[in-house]
Amino acid sequence: MMDTSTLLALVQDGVVNGAIYALLALALVLVFAVTRTIFIPVGEIVSFAALTYAGLDGKTTPPVLALTMGLGLVAFLRGAVKARGRALMILALETLGLPATVTAIVMAVVPMQLGIVANAAIAILCVAPLAPLLYRIAFAPLAEASVLVLLIASVGAHLALSGLGLLVFGPEGARGDAFSDAVLEMGPIILPGQAIWVLAATLATMIGLWAFFRFTLAGAALRATAINRRGARLVGIATDQAGLHAFWLAGLIAAVSGVLIAPLTTIYYDGGFLIGLKGFVAAIVGGLVSYPLAALAAIAVGILESFAAFQASAFKEVIVFAGIIPVLLWRSLRHVSVEDEE
């Protein structure tokens, strides 16, 4: 039997992890709704951001910048096959200019040792552009393909990126400094500062996203593309641009999650995959379309995981991932169709 304080600790642990899964679930729902891509490499973005944050020592340039610039070059070459004139200029700016600018800024800022929040920003800045670059390389050329083909491509991108992760970060894990050492005590609940940071940042991101979708034309254009692609094109929204924006947002969200999780646990180059998959479980509960459902499910996954870890630690992952199956089943029972699959 477990006592109340253990119970509370487990729930609290679950909620904190669940908040991070919730962020990832939002990113996944967003990308899927706009581009129909199930963005498996989201996990790599998480671990790369975490490792970059943990590796900032005020001296060395983050090694991930080589990856960002390299992918930028590949994306440029991939896009240059087709683009001409103004489009080529924009492509060059986004794929070559932007990573180079990020590198220059980061190299200038790192030696200043501006503190933990600046480090978090640096890590996010270095890693977030990977998502839109991946979109240009792997997914935009497949925009008309089926969800299944996009998923297989996504798995391929995950494989490649995780191999590159090993090359860039090496096999050792790392753990980042906590944002705050403060501890908040509320009766039986003891909240460490990092947990508060995670919850606050999650909440802020969600509110920010909501405001973006609700109040800006760019946000409305993304929603419109998700709801009806043809309708979006008919009002003049370029759907590949919308896809790029969705991947940008997803990259930012995933990088933020990575930085948040870095102080909570030791992260390895391939550790993000499992974290990302848990975000998936939640995203799928929401049918890959509903943000609130996905966020709630993410919290549930976090709590399930924390109890599973306590009761049967060896089978923690089995329990969490086998847990997705009934959810998938429930989803597909709810939407019965005999549509032809291609």
């Binding site: 034309l217 409305a220 254009a221 929603r223 419109a224 709801i227 009806n228 094109r233 009002v235 929204i237």
Partner: peptide, 29 residues
């Protein structure tokens, strides 16, 4: 569309889960 061509398709292709006002606003994209 940018050049001033517009189509109202047979399938209408509205943004079903957005309000009428939002649909109109996007028309001016």
């Amino acid at each position: 569309v940018e050049r001033g061509l517009a189509l109202v398709p047979e399938s209408r292709d509205l943004f079903a889960t957005m309000t009428v006002r939002e649909n109109l606003m996007l028309g001016a994209y």
